[in-house]
Each structure stands twice: as structure tokens, then as C-alpha cells.
Design a protein around this nucleic acid. Structure first.
Lengths: 154, 154
DNA sequence: GTGTCTGCAAATGTTTTGCACATTG
DNA sequence: CAATGTGCAAAACATTTGCAGACAC
């Protein structure tokens, strides 16, 4: 998990992707990383970076996030409703809390292995599988200690 | 799979859910069932029923679909982008085609069993699991023989 | 310097809301 | 007829677009 990239690492990844390393792209990327585990919307990312970067526009955040997805720097997260993004680009699973509407990462090597084996045997006709992920749904049972920063979509 | 409900069965299910069996609800439900496998948006459902029911408004379709989800008659399908609905309320898995943006159902009893066993052992702290589903991503390799009726979200 | 990127503001698209009227049970 | 549901049109919200000026390389 590439959690703590320096700005120079970041510049390099942008350049490798054929993108100019602009200030806006750097702070958008950093914000998505900081919001890791929150699967933020464009608006969330914008709110996060606005205090320190008041001149950046929401439109730019939208464009930048799309660009990052196209370049593979981040992924889109599945959700009910609005578009969400995920800084974690390696294979992992999500838990959806039906109570708080949070999307939480869930990693389990054993599960990964199990699925890998299963799908190495189980081929689908007319479909080439690129990725497998498991979505759990359920409810948190512990008191919520974490501030949910993402809007709840009804 | 409750594919071919009669209108009377439908009335009964609505009534059981505490809902009045209005004409609008009946045709919305029928449309969602007919669009089974397409995971339609509200707009898709509206377009489907409009020719035969020109007096029904899009707003009603939105409200009706939400009501159905609350009552458990249908589910929301995870997606990138707009809200989608799914007439198939029993546990099943989805395949996302990155090429056509289609969402296709995928059922496999063996996989179901494997996951059930896995999660009967693997308990999560502070989370009560209610459902498990697998999302595959990939691309169709066969020529597309099927008309996609749902809008592609970029 | 040149091609790409950004900010802005407008356009477009999607979903929700409020309320007078219609319909169901 | 009482309660609930619908249609309509406006409002709210979310996302995209076009273009002139700014910036990275």
C-alpha cells in the first residue's frame, strides 16, 4: 500500500502517466490518499483541500479525479448513488454498512487466495475476468468512533 | 426466482408490505422485472413503461422505486454513478463489464457455498455480516448480441 | 514558446420536494 | 371518507462543458 508518497514520488507517478505535475493534481492526489478508507466523492475531496488551497475549483477536482482513474492512479469505488473514488488500487474488498452507509476496506489474504483458486478453475464463457472483489453488507455493532465525512445518500 | 408474478400476486405483495396496490406501482414493478438483468435506473424504468402508460410521471417512478427498496421488494444495485435497481432480491453476484458498462448477474452455487463456509469461520469484530456478494470486473469477449438499454455513465 | 491544464460560469443531467388533486381500501 | 399516492413544476443537487488565460516543461 503506497501510503506515504513524497511529493517527488508523486510528481514521478504523474509524469510516468503522461500528466503534468501541477499543484492541483498533487493536492488532489494527496487528499484522496488522506481520505483513504473513506471512498470520497469529488465534493469530499474538494472540501478536504479547500482550506489549504482556496483557489482550486470544484470543476478541476472532478476533471482531475477522472484523469487519475483513466491513468490508473486511483479507482472508482462501487456505491449506491454518487461517484466515489478509492486511493487503494490493489485488490481488496469492501464492506458496506447499511446503517451508516460507510464503505470500509476489508483485506484478507486467505479469502483472496480462495477466490483466486476458485476462478482459476471456473472460467466464464465470453467474459474475461480482470478482477474479483467481495462486497459484504451488514451493520456496525460497535459504537461509531469514527467521523464519517462522506454525505449519506438516501 | 419470482419471475412471473401475476398482477394479483403483485397486489398481494404490495399489500403485505403495507402499500396500496395502485396502477403505477404495478406497472413500475412489472417494468423492473422485465428489465431484470439490466439493473435499470429510474429513467430506464420510466422509458420502459411510458409508451403503455403515458400519464405516469418520472417523479412517481423515483418515489416508487425508493418505496420498493424500503419495503424490500427490490434492491439497489451497486454501480459507478447513477442509482440502479435490481428485481433479483436473493443473493447473487454481479459482473461489471468495463467495456460496455453493463452489469450482468452471475449465479454459482459452488461459489456461494465456498463463501458461506469461509464467513462462518471468519468473523469480523464490530461488524455483523448480513450478505456477501462478489463483483467481477472484466470485459466481454464475444460480440455483443444484446441491446444495452441502460445509459452508459462515463 | 507551445501544448496542456485550470478557473469560471453556464449548461446539462439527476434526484428530491411541496402541494393540489386523484385514488385506494 | 380517510389516508395514501400521484402529477406537476420548481428546487436542489451533481456533473460536464467550453473557452480564455495560466502554467509546466
Amino acid at each position: 500500500m503506497q501510503q506515504n508518497l513524497t511529493r517527488d514520488d508523486l510528481r514521478q507517478r504523474l509524469t510516468e502517466g503522461g500528466l503534468k505535475a501541477t499543484h492541483q493534481r498533487i493536492v488532489v492526489f494527496e487528499s484522496v490518499m488522506e481520505l483513504h478508507g473513506h471512498h470520497p466523492t469529488a465534493e469530499d475531496v474538494y472540501q478536504r483541500l479547500k482550506p489549504a488551497n482556496p483557489s482550486i475549483s470544484l470543476g478541476t477536482v472532478y476533471k482531475t479525479l477522472d484523469t487519475f482513474v483513466e491513468t490508473g492512479l486511483i479507482k472508482r469505488a462501487l456505491s449506491e448513488g454518487g461517484k466515489r473514488y478509492d486511493a487503494n488500487t490493489h485488490t481488496h474488498n469492501h464492506i458496506f454498512c447499511s446503517k451508516t452507509k460507510e464503505i470500509v476496506d476489508f483485506e484478507d489474504a486467505e479469502l483472496e487466495q480462495l477466490l483466486k483458486e476458485f476462478f482459476s478453475k471456473r472460467k466464464l464463457d465470453n467474459f474475461e475476468i480482470k478482477g474479483v472483489s467481495v462486497q459484504l453488507t451488514g451493520s456496525k455493532v460497535e459504537p461509531d468512533k469514527q467521523i464519517s465525512i462522506t454525505r449519506v445518500s438516501k
